[in-house]
């Protein structure tokens, strides 16, 4: 039996296809404009690699910001519950999930039965999320992938304000104009994000073990900064 999960995030969309609970295909693409067509396109592309069609799937579950706009999904489930479920399969010992996505950062507490016990998310403002990092990478003309490794080289990170992405961007631009080290600026950006996420996480009681998910998990400096904060 084939089943698929589709996660329409604010920046990236992800698809997984499972056969009898085994992962057999996955695909990540930028979400782009129109969710209804984008979601069908990405799923069909993933199915194509297996020589399957949409009608071969016994069930499709949609999650993520765009979950309500996936017309062919049987069920919509929030990312929060999905992370809880995912940990049953991936890391059953995990009790806290830190998800750093495009427009949301989340902390999710999972109990011993893999039930979502508690969760917390950033409010409307998207400073401290993946999008923030992307905007800063653009402002500094550094590729998103290089941001993490560069940050790790810094000895004295700059202090970056994080009340507003737009203000932080102009601060970064001024620091560059003043001739400050790009590496220190980048390190400061990572620290600022980590602080903001950590502040939010304190609202739920962080428990071992911890998993970091979302695009932010791919950033080594961000993960290390969070590790340092959490201790």
């Amino acid at each position: 039996m084939y089943v698929a999960g589709i996660d329409i995030g604010s920046i990236y969309s992800k698809v997984v296809i499972l056969q009898d609970n085994q992962l057999i295909a996955s695909l990540v693409q930028r979400t782009g404009g129109e969710i209804k067509t984008a979601s069908r396109r990405i799923l069909e592309e993933a199915l194509e690699t297996l020589g399957l069609k949409l009608y071969d799937l016994a069930a499709v579950v949609a999650t993520g910001y765009g979950r309500i706009s996936v017309p062919f999904a049987e069920k919509q489930v929030t990312e929060i519950t999905c992370f809880g479920r995912a940990m049953v399969h991936l890391y059953p010992e995990v009790r806290t999930v830190i998800d750093i996505g495009g427009q949301d950062s989340k902390g999710i507490k999972i109990d011993e039965n893999h039930k979502v016990e508690d969760f917390v998310m950033n409010d409307k403002c998207a400073a401290g999320t993946g999008r923030f990092l992307e905007v800063m990478a653009n402002a500094l003309e550094v590729s998103l992938e290089d941001m993490g490794p560069l940050a790790l080289q810094s000895k004295s990170p700059e202090v970056i304000g994080i009340t507003c992405t737009v203000f932080a961007e102009s601060q970064v631009v001024s620091l560059v104009a003043e001739g400050r080290s790009k590496i220190d600026i980048i390190a400061g950006i990572h620290q600022a994000i980590a602080e903001r996420i950590y502040g939010m996480l304190k609202m739920i009681k962080i428990e071992d073990r911890i998993a970091v998910t979302g695009g932010g998990a791919k950033n080594i400096a961000l993960v290390k900064a969070l590790e340092k904060k959490i201790g």
């Binding site: 910001y65 309500i68 919509q76 489930v77 929030t78 990312e79 929060i80 519950t81 949301d104 039930k115 979502v116 969760f119 998310m121 409010d123 409307k124």
Partner: peptide
């Protein structure tokens, strides 16, 4: 000051907790 997507995700995750 209303951001529908953010609020809906929170509330739906809450409803899912009720279901659980």
């Amino acid at each position: 000051f209303f951001s529908a997507g953010q609020i809906q995700t929170r509330l739906e995750a809450f409803f899912e907790q009720l279901e659980q």
